[in-house]
Amino acid sequence: MPQTLSPQYAIQAKNLSVYYGAFRAVKNITLSIEQRKVTAIIGPSGCGKSTVLRSFNRMNELTPSASIAGEILFMGQNIYAPEVDPVEVRRRVGMVFQKPNPFPKSIYENVAWGARLNGFRSGLGRPNMDEWVETCLRKAALWDEVKDKLQQSGLSLSGGQQQRLCIARAIAVKPEIILMDEPASALDPIATLKIEELMRELAEEYTIIVVTHNMQQAARVSDFTAFFSMDEDRAGALVEYGLTTQIFTTPKDSRTEGYITGRYG
């Protein structure tokens, strides 16, 4: 399917501002994320990258003081509309965190848990749970390493393996979007490389939004890049957004150029 013919965006933020109490952490972000692409969010520390990402699946609601203004459309539908259930939103917009956080359950159970929770149904012509767990672990490029120890605790894996397990866990509920907040920052270079490859592969099926501090990583894995920065009152704002190749070769804004070349931030 030619990608150019998909006008519908996975996520659109319109005039999004996020507050922690009275403090405005990000202001007036307007941005449209393409389906089945990898979009990278970069920017200096504290500019609100995580904040924006967490508002995409209403995870920010778990912080009691957080509130938002503006709209976030998921497949054209405002996810903050009163009739929308955050539980439903989070099932369809999954998340992978900075620090690997597998459940203290078996590897198998880590993957199966979310699927079962969301009413996984097997049947004729459909995978049963064992097959589905295998599929997800294969997609997360972890299957070969764990296939003989599915009943061991997820905590017994190495950091990189744990993170891939978390990715398998996320895709096991068949989300449409996967949000990743610095998914490789706690990992060594080899594990990082594996995660990056994985992101590229997953982009065939999922929309991926990844926050990263690593410029090379953003350049390597992403199709689009959004650069955030802070203004005087410490509120984060979107500075520039476009094709990764364009952002990294011919940035329009001098702040973007400064940040990418390491002169700023």
Partner: peptide, 13 residues
């Protein structure tokens, strides 16, 4: 840890 709760919520729990 809070991270376990977040993991569960992120799966739609």
């Amino acid at each position: 840890p809070r991270s376990l709760r977040e993991a569960a919520y992120a799966l739609g729990a």
